[in-house]
């Protein structure tokens, strides 16, 4: 066999994967290993693959992804904390032919924005919500989130979350799946190649639902890591996530084509 050099392989005609043009060249402000970057990238890949760049408007939340508009190379609006589903509703109602999505974290979507989330879902707004759940307030320095697990340590639950006094972690994804206004509800992850591929398919389905004007909202939760907030290395945080987050927040489709998926 003839010897093949890297120069022989690294040629334009052999290119099989590069970062989408719908991500800017700005260095992402996320911590090393944070799943936000991956979630951004696959969302933009879906928009690129459907050729939706010219008709898509994204809503950035308050939280770690407040600067999503610095990285997503499409028209974007930055919303007040928790209000992204209302902002998205406002846009979609006046531009029913445009593609509108919000990108929100757990504090934004499941605490301060609970009303906006539930009512946008309940009205069946024909939008996509991408929900990053890492069980913590990352941006403000690791405080307890509505999704923080029982016993989990954060800067505002320094001895672990005590459910008797601090409440239970909110499974808002299961909650919105019960509403007739949601058409597609799924929970995924982006910590392994296989998980990323599945999540991208889910995001693709979500945008396809909107593109084909399916009756209802498509809701994609991505359980993700917060290695800085959890105080672990990125790789360890993904292992911890599999062992602790996934049992409480099991991955998989919860509602497909307007029908709840039967639990096994």
């Amino acid at each position: 066999m003839s010897t093949i050099t890297l120069e022989d392989i690294i040629k334009p005609e052999n290119l099989v994967y590069k970062k989408t043009e719908l991500l800017t060249d700005n260095v992402m402000s996320y911590c090393p290993g944070c799943g936000h970057g991956t979630a951004h990238r696959i969302t933009m890949e879906v928009i690129e693959e459907f050729d939706l760049e010219e008709k898509t408007i994204g809503i950035a939340p308050v939280g770690c992804s407040v600067l999503a508009y610095e990285f997503m190379n499409i028209d974007m609006i930055q919303a007040a904390h928790g209000r992204a589903p209302a902002v998205a509703t406002g846009i979609k109602r006046v531009y029913p032919n445009k593609i509108v999505f919000s990108y929100q974290g757990d504090g934004d979507l499941a605490a301060i924005g609970t009303a906006e989330t539930i009512h946008a879902c309940n009205r069946g707004e024909r939008i996509v919500i991408i929900f990053i759940n890492n069980g913590i307030y990352g941006m403000t320095g690791g405080q307890m989130a509505p999704t923080t697990l029982p016993g989990m340590i954060s800067s505002t639950s320094p001895y672990g979350r005590v459910v008797e006094s601090m409440g239970n972690p909110l499974k808002i994804t299961e909650l919105v799946a019960q509403l007739p206004g949601t058409y597609f509800v799924t929970r995924q992850a982006v910590h392994t190649p296989a998980a990323v591929r599945r999540t991208k398919r889910a995001i693709k389905k979500a945008f396809e639902n909107q593109l084909t004007n399916k009756p209802g909202l498509s809701f994609v939760e991505i359980v993700s890591n917060c290695n800085s907030g959890w105080k672990m290395t990125p790789v360890d945080s993904n292992i911890w996530m599999e062992e602790n987050m996934f049992p409480y927040y099991p991955l998989g489709d919860i509602k497909v084509d307007g029908e709840l998926v039967k639990q096994k």
């Binding site: 022989d8 690294i10 005609e13 970057g37």
Partner: peptide
């Protein structure tokens, strides 16, 4: 196989592939 590029949070990996 692109696995590395797919999980890279910062999108910094470009992948090339060919048959020999």
């Amino acid at each position: 196989c692109m696995n590395c590029a797919i999980v890279c949070p910062d999108g910094v990996i470009t992948v090339y592939r060919t048959k020999v």
